[in-house]
Design a protein around this nucleic acid. Structure first.
Lengths: 194, 194, 194, 194
DNA sequence: GGCTAATCGAGACGGTACGTCAAGTCTTCCA
DNA sequence: TGGAAGACTTGACGTACCGTCTCGATTAGCC
């Protein structure tokens, strides 16, 4: 089907080193201070070798961010409230104490430069969270906690949108109980029966 | 107290031309493609003259974005639902059809580069919207639509956060009825009495 | 002595295509703009295949120039003057209107990069001209036009050196009667008896 | 007449350092191995500072070669033969033992890349030698050594052309008595009366 | 009215990174 | 083994801005 692979095949180890170097660079220098030149050096690889794989900085960063997604088990704590609280709190925690903040910020900047790559990015970590939310929502409906006709898009958007705005867009601090208050308000909005 | 201004005073016209040029640059080239050098040229001003006013690109952009805030009358349509719908819909409209999208994106990027400037930015257009929301919330409490102990921070965060996430962070399209659905869900969350 | 040829024999057609491609490249792009990569592409051959035959660009070009030498009959017009005029005029003509100019220039550049290859090149087209001159000089001596003790090296150097300097080194124009004036002066220098 | 000098004036010391660095580079690495980047580094100057002065490598080298011309007193030894011998011998000596060889070779290469710069170069050291020759020729005519109608262009071309061909184009050795034999033959060609 | 001081335009300067090109070597598959 | 394809390292290309600097020419207030 696809043509036979001709010529010297790409070195998988090189692939890995580039992505790792990019990730490290994002975490400790940020998107703007990151340069293709620097990533290449950090990866111990020639600049051209990076450009052969990624047309530019934006694509490189997108790939690095995508590679940083780590699977987390979807919580199943018995009630929608507990599940959502767990998801939101984890998210806030990773934004503030893990590397997720740096990654999301980098993603944003890359998309700001290259809006055309947005579809490529949507399939990434955001979709992951959306899927998690969908799972816990389905279980809640099955348990009768949520009315079947609930506006599913909103469940995700309300809970995560507010966190994004404060944490990412506006660089505002997020209080310790913020997640719980957020979920409490949103649940009432969905008409949760408890 | 402050010493008398010695030497040649700054040219106010130059101030204006720089900010206008920066705004125009943000709108039609975006933050990353914007250069201090380019803004200076566009303003018909020497590079030094820009640097004398703003230490760098981030500060220049922040000033330009701040200058783009336009006062809008706070809606007073008789019910919290109508007022919030108006605020949210206006916001969505400006994000998608006006220059607000470009401005917010630029703001974001400037803050991503220079998180230390965040407080400086919070006083800007975001605070403006927050104040608008507070006004309509106060009226709703006075009318008895909202319980007095409502989580006020959430009113703003829920309604605008979701819009930010979709429109700015993720570059996703926003459906025509999105604002109404958003407000409907949120209002239930606040325990609105209708 | 030499080991029996093992493995797949070299393709003679490939040899030819490479040299032709190199010659074409010299003529229409010049030495500096010529790249091994480009020659390989032009010849429809892999870069490796070129490198297997020639260690580098200089050697490739030398081979191409050498292959461009074309045998011309030595003139025999009855007098040294006429013979030399013919040789010099032909040379000037080829330098200016044929591809010889490009070839000599490429040769020069290759030697400038790799002076160690000079002996390899001397055996080339220069020797060819030198031999031509020697033939007409011998005939002139036999005819009694030239004294037997004439400084033979000078015959060639004077007539061709001046042309080289103007045409190749200095890129100066060469007047139509330049060759005749040159030969006239030189002949007197040799003590020609007419 | 000329417009007033605006902006910060160029640093003359920088001018000098660049030219000196280029000259040094020509002498010890040759034209091809010379890079604008390297010259900038050697001069302790930013790459852009070089490019601000010279559009490219060819122009830089031309300027460096031009700056290497050193005034030498025109010989006046009493006879055309002695004067020409002195000029030619000096030239040969500088080609072989001084830096002139490297300079001329670099000049050649620069012109091969950029033939359009030829006029710019002709004004250089070549013109200098031509002028020297003209001076000694004038004196010879005044003394009655040369007929007034001598082909002046040939005096220079014959004597120096042969040297160029052997020394520069063909990288051939030049015998110790080569200059004398050359001048002897040429002088007869000019119809010198002794 | 001259002095002092800052503004403004212009552009040089040392840097950093850009994205591209070619050099020459190496690795893999196919014939 | 020869040949085609292409990955890989290396190094330079010429360009764009960065933020700092040094000029000359204005343009004020103050003595």
């Amino acid at each position: 089907m696809s043509s036979a692979p001709r010529g010297r095949p790409r070195d998988a180890d090189v692939d890995a080193r580039i992505v790792l170097a990019a990730r490290a660079a994002i975490i400790d220098t940020g998107y703007d201070a990151l340069s293709v030149e620097g990533v290449a050096a950090r990866a111990g690889v020639a600049k051209t070798t990076v450009y052969r794989r990624y047309p530019g900085k934006a694509e490189l960063v997108l790939a690095a961010v995508a590679s940083a997604i780590h699977e987390a088990p979807v919580p199943d704590l018995g009630s929608l409230r507990l599940d959502l609280e767990r998801l939101v709190d984890d998210h806030i925690h990773q934004l503030q104490h893990g590397h997720l903040g740096a990654m999301v910020r980098a993603l944003q900047l890359a998309l700001a430069e290259r809006p055309d790559l947005a579809p490529l990015a949507s399939g990434g970590f955001l979709a992951e969270r959306k899927r998690d939310v969908d799972v816990v929502v389905d279980r809640a409906i099955a348990r009768g906690e949520l009315p079947p006709g609930v506006d599913r898009e909103m469940v995700f958007d309300l809970c995560f949108g507010a966190v994004f705005m404060r944490g990412i867009v506006m660089h505002l601090p997020i209080a310790r109980d913020y997640g719980h208050r957020l979920v409490a308000t949103a649940l009432r909005g969905y008409g949760v029966v408890e």
